[in-house]
Design a protein around this nucleic acid. Sequence first.
DNA 1: TTGCCTACCTAGCGCTTGTTAGGTAAACTT
DNA 2: AAGTTTACCTAACAAGCGCTAGGTAGGCAA
Lengths: 195, 195
Amino acid sequence: MGDVATHRRDELLAAAEELFARRGFQATSVREIADAMNIQAGSLYAHIETKEDLLWEILTAAADRFFDAINPVVGSDLVTIEKLRRAIAAHVGVITNSVKSAAVYSTEWRHLTEPHRSEFAARRDEYEKLFRSMVREAIREGALGDVDEKFATLLILSSINWIYQWYSPEGPMTPEDIARRITDLLLNGLRRAGT
Amino acid sequence: MGDVATHRRDELLAAAEELFARRGFQATSVREIADAMNIQAGSLYAHIETKEDLLWEILTAAADRFFDAINPVVGSDLVTIEKLRRAIAAHVGVITNSVKSAAVYSTEWRHLTEPHRSEFAARRDEYEKLFRSMVREAIREGALGDVDEKFATLLILSSINWIYQWYSPEGPMTPEDIARRITDLLLNGLRRAGT
DNA sequence: TTGCCTACCTAGCGCTTGTTAGGTAAACTT
DNA sequence: AAGTTTACCTAACAAGCGCTAGGTAGGCAA
């Protein structure tokens, strides 16, 4: 498979991703994906085996980016609270770098069938565990309050995951702004200090 | 339409809601909904005009419950920060009272077609505005810090909306527990006080 | 020049979809 | 008893779905 083929396949994945993010996997037909490529539906099968291949590749590529971003943070020697800050920033960076990818990652995985679905669930759990470990450690060190570690982890992840619903590169905030603000709000709270 | 018909229609909406929450609107066929009712697909049309009717009714019923819960809080004479606390608790109460309904409310609205889709978007915006007003007021009164009101509002709503993804009536936390914890975390932050 | 490969084409195929239309048993009303 | 209504039945219908198979133009290699 040469560069042209790889390029076309990337184009195909990008078209599929955009449509899956906007309409949902099930509501998107292979004919619509082919239309976006200016080819016929039958032609897609020169690049893929099944429609689900597209979803699987989009989801595993997104998962790879999340892990690639967070692993250096987890493996660093930073104090735990700073690790947590950096991990949030890394996650936000991945989301803002590809909002559509993040949207598909959050919402379309349930359309996977076995064995892909279990594999994806295992990866997502693994990723969540990385955050949960940092939270547990930060609680143990006294950097975080006496909060339920699972609850706190879910709060953090759900707060940063909704960013794909509103972030726009054209918006006023940079990804760094967003990461800093959301980390401050999560760690320090919305309340005015001293009240 | 008598009690029996109303009962059957409620049963139909409940079956549809359960399947839409678990599989998604598009991935759920009217045959599957009919199967859940022990009737044939064609029989559904004695109760509904179209498949979308089901989604529309589920979503508008959910929106009604959110507004019914929050309007008394908004119209009360409480200080704003206490209003916000109560509004969050009211929202959490609606979610925990019907997790499936909340799931459909959060994820399936995009399968609505016009004019339902615009109507739904308008209602959701109206609801968000109620929260945003309280946040703006709390910032103005100094109860909340110098945070972006839109950002803070989105943080609050997204944090409480993910509850449908993990809450179970069989779980260890009551809805009141959850509401208190999440409000504390959002207002006071995850960080240990004094650090 | 010939043969091979690739990325597309067309033309389906078998299946599923949402929905409709005519029918009917049972319950209810007159 | 007769007529009406309701909630279901069956049997489609038309459209769209994911995918396959045979074909081909163009590019490339021998």
